[in-house]
Design a protein around this nucleic acid. Structure first.
Length: 445
RNA sequence: GUGGCUGUAGCUCAGUUGGUUAGAGCGCCGGAUUGUGGUUCCGGAGGUCGUGGGUUCAAGACCCAUCAGCCACCCCA
């Protein structure tokens, strides 16, 4: 092998980190199933025209064969950059085999060619849930997602989440009432309010989009409205403009906010500057941050799309959100904020007293394994001190000692307490906390 | 994709205006401790200074390119 180097944007975890990642993925998966979502795993590649169908400004990794007949021909396939667009294709393709409303989850890697930095990678896990229906999808589905997001984040060893929510109809309806034609442009600018500030938003709206001073100020005022309860409705109405789409959006957002009032204070915030990507969202949009770690950016986001999977005859509206698992982990790992109780799946290390005793050690290990206890045999007949140290370094909680040919000699040392007791290979059981990976959040550093 | 900062042992970092054999702490390995870890003490290994090229009598220090990490833009998980 030639030079070994990392590849920019393609993170690789160490074993302890991978165990933690697996813990995150498992936790999320169980919650998804708890809420009634069913797994699918569409292929990682899509025809380029599918990937580009909702916008052509994507940074896509394309795919080609080394021995292609015509190496200069344009690539036909690309790696998917999210789960939603391929899901829409999947639903259309298998519609006859699916039951609606179809609630599915996908936990897969996605690839984007963007320039990497912390929290932004070229290869990363997304944990994605969507519900899609034929005909109409009631607003009550929109209202379920904040509860679900809060439940999932609460079950992970991360900082608490703040879920910001908005409805695109409020923004587009309001802009129509103001006779603004370039709604998408305004969305893009107002979405940056938190980052660039009020005066820069006004400036961009006027200089780049040609809005009048009055239009720009009204767009800004709308975007500055935030509330954790229903008071945003009156604030919007106080601006003095009405439009059917605007009213529809207000009603929907009010429903979502009202349904989420049982969440802890500060978890849900109606934020009328929130717009998100321009490609397919048509109604409710969500975006989530870790409280106190806003610089990381959004760790979960999504929304409602009414037209993504629809064709001329049948409407297939859907709502989906995606959790940025790799983004969270990269950030938490870099700050050493995650602590695990073990760094190896092994529960028991059988100490090897001599090379001649190896077969017996393997027999002991296999007995334990047959009862579901993850067991390893030390690789060499080292001094016991070293064997204990090996266990300690791998995060293995127990070391099993025996004298060759003497089944009554079995003793088990808990290396966390130093305690050593006589045990039987047929009856000893580890405590649940010994076998189960536990990850905790360390906010101190 | 655009712009900026950074890159010296496994890790965190020193390294004078370019000058001979590149250092420290932690970690790692061995021993004290003759088969039961974590403390202490003693000893040891480990670096073509990210990589490639250039300037110079001389480059870890300067220049160029490239790769990687981070930051801002862009976009979003």
């Amino acid at each position: 092998m030639a030079k070994i180097n990392p590849v920019s944007g393609f993170p690789e975890w160490l074993p302890e980190e991978k165990l933690i990642e697996q813990f995150f993925l498992d936790t999320v998966r169980k919650k998804f199933e708890l809420y009634g979502f069913t797994p699918i795993e569409p292929r990682s590649i899509e025809p380029l025209d599918v990937l580009l169908s909702k916008g052509d400004d994507k940074e896509i990794y394309t795919l080609r064969r080394l021995h292609e007949e015509d190496p200069s021909a344009p690539a036909e396939f690309g790696l998917h950059f999210d789960m939603t667009v391929p899901f829409a294709r999947y639903v259309q393709q298998y519609r006859g085999h699916l039951n609606f409303p179809f609630k599915r989850y996908q936990i897969q890697k996605a690839w984007r060619g963007e320039r990497p930095q912390e929290g932004r990678y070229r290869e990363f896990y997304q944990a994605d849930i969507d519900v899609i229906n034929e005909g109409d999808l009631p607003i009550s589905y929109d209202a379920e997602f904040p509860q679900l997001i809060h439940d999932i984040i609460s079950s992970l060893p991360t900082p608490p989440v703040c879920i910001r929510v908005n409805n695109r109809k409020i923004l587009t309806g309001f802009y129509q009432a103001l006779s603004i034609s370039d709604a998408a442009g305004v969305l893009r600018v107002v979405d940056k309010l938190d980052k660039i500030g009020a005066s820069a938003v006004i400036g961009s709206l006027k200089d780049e989009l040609g809005l009048s001073q009055e239009q720009a100020e009204l767009c800004l005022k709308l975007g500055q409205i935030k509330s954790s309860d229903l008071s945003f409705v009156k604030e919007v109405q106080a601006l003095g403009y009405s439009h059917p789409t605007l009213q529809e959006g207000l009603d929907e957002l009010a429903f979502v906010v009202a349904a989420s009032q049982s969440l802890p204070q500060g978890t849900l915030l109606a934020d009328l500057s929130l717009a998100r990507g321009l490609d397919y969202y048509t109604g409710t949009v969500y975006e989530c941050n870790f409280v106190g770690h806003e610089s990381l950016g959004s760790i979960c986001g999504g929304g409602r799309y009414d037209n993504l999977a629809s064709d001329d005859k049948v409407k297939l509206p859907g709502i989906g959100i995606s959790f940025g698992i790799t983004r969270m982990l990269g950030y938490l790992f870099a700050r050493k904020m995650l602590k695990a109780n073990k760094s190896s799946p092994v529960t028991v290390l059988v100490a090897l007293p001599s090379e001649e005793a190896r077969l017996e050690a393997i027999t002991i290990a296999n007995r334990l394994r047959s009862r579901g206890i993850s067991t390893d045999v030390n690789h060499a007949a080292q001094k016991f001190g070293k064997q204990i140290r090996n266990a300690e370094r791998s995060g293995v909680p127990y070391v099993w000692f025996f004298t060759q040919g003497d089944a009554s000699s079995y003793e088990l040392k808990d290396i966390r307490t130093g305690e050593q007791t006589k045990v039987s290979v047929e009856t000893w059981e580890p405590k649940p906390e010994d076998t189960k990976l536990q990850v905790s959040l360390n906010l101190e550093p």
